[in-house]
């Protein structure tokens, strides 16, 4: 009996301590901070206030929220548009090819994401590889503005987050029973009908899963906006980073974070309503 308790203790106590000290308390603390005042030198004045929440509905910040949402949505849609055909084409290949291709999707993902983002600078800048190639082939006359703007950010986000869409979508699409599609074909269903009535319903969970794992980082990855946006295009991530690391307004930064948590929870609730499982989000 005693031994039983010992194992219970060593298997349960660490996770309790962990989830309380490293998850619950930090989040409760920033929730608390979001209702405090700041003294403009970086100090916190412990006085209850709603100022921070009024500040974030100011036009300046609302614009950033809207732009982030737009960037997040465009990135997610682009990822879906790339991943769906990719998964569907691979579905007809042998499992060997499927395995190889999913591994090949993983490889870039295992190298440093910043160095890959840097690779995009070399490609996208005014005298970069893409512009040089386009001009050499006489496709364009003047260099295109591919970075230091929203286009650059969207390319960078789509690139960095694509595996999060491809992998769940592939595993969902690969699981669809081929005989189901064959049967539909025999019954004279068009390709569109097959896609709409069989493939989409059978793989939609992968789309939801991928969308969540793409959209949420896409509004927070400040370093991509920073590097490919030239310091003038801000997303919510930059806003929070600036409040904490330059504007010294932790309460305001906390309020924006709480707002972001709220958005996340709403999205997760929708995901669960649509039948998504939480455990699928953590697996790769």
């Amino acid at each position: 009996m005693k031994k039983n308790n010992l194992f219970k203790a060593i298997s349960i106590i660490p996770v309790i301590i962990y989830s309380i000290t490293l998850i619950l308390l930090p989040l409760l603390y920033i929730f608390f901070l979001s209702f405090q005042k700041n003294d403009s030198y970086g100090g916190i004045i412990y006085e209850l206030t709603l100022t921070n929440y009024f500040t974030i509905i100011d036009l300046t910040y609302l614009k950033v929220f809207l732009k982030s949402a737009l960037i997040g949505i465009i990135t997610t849609v682009l990822c879906i548009l790339i991943s769906y055909p990719f998964a569907l084409i691979l579905k007809n290949k042998s499992s060997k090819v499927q395995n190889l291709c999913t591994k090949l999707v993983m490889v870039p993902f295992l190298t440093n994401s910043l160095i890959r983002t840097y690779g995009w600078i070399v490609l996208l800048r005014k005298n970069g590889v893409i512009n040089a190639t386009l001009q050499a082939l006489h496709i364009t006359n003047a260099p295109l503005n591919l970075m230091y703007n929203n286009i650059g950010i969207i390319i960078g986000m789509t690139y960095t987050l694509l595996p999060f869409m491809i992998l769940p979508l592939c595993s969902a699409v690969f699981k669809i029973d081929k005989s189901l599609i064959e049967a539909a074909k025999d019954l004279g269903a068009s390709r569109m009908q097959i896609f709409k009535n069989i493939i989409v319903p059978e793989s939609i969970s992968g789309v939801f899963n991928g969308s969540l794992m793409v959209f949420i980082p896409a509004i927070g990855y400040f370093f991509i906006a920073d590097i490919l946006g030239g310091g003038k295009e801000m997303i919510i991530g930059n806003l929070i980073k600036n409040q904490f690391l330059t504007a010294r307004n932790w309460p305001l930064g906390s309020a924006i974070s709480i707002f972001l948590i709220l958005i996340t929870f709403i999205l997760v609730k929708i995901y669960q309503k649509l039948g998504g499982k939480m455990d699928d989000l953590g697996g790769m």
Partner: peptide, 20 residues
């Protein structure tokens, strides 16, 4: 609680850890 670090944006976890 254990799902929170998986779903919330990393930046929120980052600043909340920094604060604590």
């Amino acid at each position: 609680l254990i799902y929170i670090p998986i779903v919330i944006p990393e930046i929120v976890l980052g600043i909340s850890l920094l604060s604590i």
